[in-house]
Design a protein around this nucleic acid. Structure first.
Lengths: 220, 220
DNA sequence: CTCCGATTGTTGCAAATGCAACAGACCTTT
DNA sequence: AAAGGTCTGTTGCATTTGCAACAATCGGAG
């Protein structure tokens, strides 16, 4: 098992991690496709690391409505949110393909362990960092979704990509069809708007390369 | 200064807190209306507790676009998110009215202090808990905003309220006009939809009391 | 090369939504 | 009682968007 690329263990050496595994008696478990890895209802008592495979986090409301909350891939972390904050409804982590998982007991996180691992604090800090990142991602998405029109949503997204790159041009990280999902709009409607924006001289699009043409301000 | 109602210090006694204040040399500072309490750019080095007053957290993009991220009231916490996760753009906390604030250095949070306060860990845990809650609130909002129609957004909101209460009736916690903002729709459009929903026998509305009439399923 | 699937691009039409404008209800203050 | 504010409720109209259906392009597999 290689933990080095796992964000949760950033800054901790492989040997330290393996030593630590005793503390929270962590052993890798396997789950076949379709199996429920863990279910957070009331009794949420551990978080987990997905060492291999793909899984989804899905929320099940009391009324049976179901929604996919997150997609987990190799090295992904799950349960960090539901372990402490008491979720109102059930959250399940389900294997989409064969998965290998290590669970870490919640208790281990909240107290120094008997062995007084030096890296204990490091991991708590990592956890904190990962949560912060998640909050920021979500805030950003809320802001995007709060834009009233497709055009505003697109501009918001484009500006953000550009800011990240530092230039006024960027390469789409995924196909336009996925962008439509992301901004929560119908694909054809989005394409139509994209065309108008091109005609209005707001953007230039070449394949997956998008260039923002400065001259627009005040999209409040 | 009374810290007892402050979520960050939950589970810690008043005397302990005051003793702790030495550790992170926390002293209350005052800010007049309109003043910037703190600005998180690169150099984010402390979180803060709003002991009194009202403030807003706002994000300023590189392009100058500004958006209010959060409203802080008495006992509110700020900076927990930006302190560690490196924000891409600047975040400011600004006093809306006269504010009293205590800052806690980031260092104090990440390491055990010299005095080895017993409650240190408790506070880190509280912080973690608060972050989890925030993630859940945001996830919920993303889910709501991802509904394609006003009707679906309203149903989602109503179901959620009912689930919380445990009944099929609940009292609106704020005026309908605010609900419109929350679901990110035009108020009149929302009222129109609300009327249709009443006509379709989905809900019954009496003043601020809303009753969900079961018979609907599959709003996917 | 050829076929196939995924992606991009387009269009007509119906439905949903935003916008503006207004009226009545209710509450508090003067 | 009168006045002013906020909240609720309504409606016409223009615009935006979703939906369905289809054409064109591209890239890889055989």
């Amino acid at each position: 098992m290689n933990f080095l690329n796992c964000p949760l263990f950033q800054g901790v050496t492989q040997t330290e991690i393996e030593k630590m595994m005793d503390c929270f008696n962590g052993k890798a478990e396997s789950f076949a496709e379709g199996k429920t890895i863990i279910s957070y209802a009331e009794n949420s008592d551990s978080i987990g690391v997905l060492l291999d495979g793909v899984a989804v986090v899905r929320r099940i409301g009391r009324n049976g409505d179901l929604s996919v909350q997150e997609l987990l891939v190799k090295n992904g972390l799950f349960g960090e949110v539901f372990c402490f904050g008491a979720a109102k409804d059930t959250v399940e982590v389900v294997a989409v393909e064969k998965c290998t998982v290590v669970f870490i007991d919640k208790m281990w996180i909240t107290r120094p362990c008997a062995n007084a691992c030096g890296c204990h604090l490091q991991i708590i800090q990592n956890l904190y960092f990962l949560l912060s990142e998640k909050v920021q991602r979500l805030s950003e998405k809320v802001e995007l979704l709060s834009k009233r029109s497709i055009r505003q949503k697109l501009l918001y997204f484009f500006h953000r990509q550009c800011a990240q790159e530092g230039t006024d041009t960027f390469l789409m990280p995924f196909p336009f069809s996925s962008l439509a999902e992301y901004v929560n709009a119908d694909r054809s409607a989005m394409m139509r708007e994209l065309k108008k924006m091109r005609e209005d001289g707001l953007v230039r699009i070449n394949g997956r390369s998008v260039t923002l043409l400065q001259r627009d301000r005040e999209e409040e």
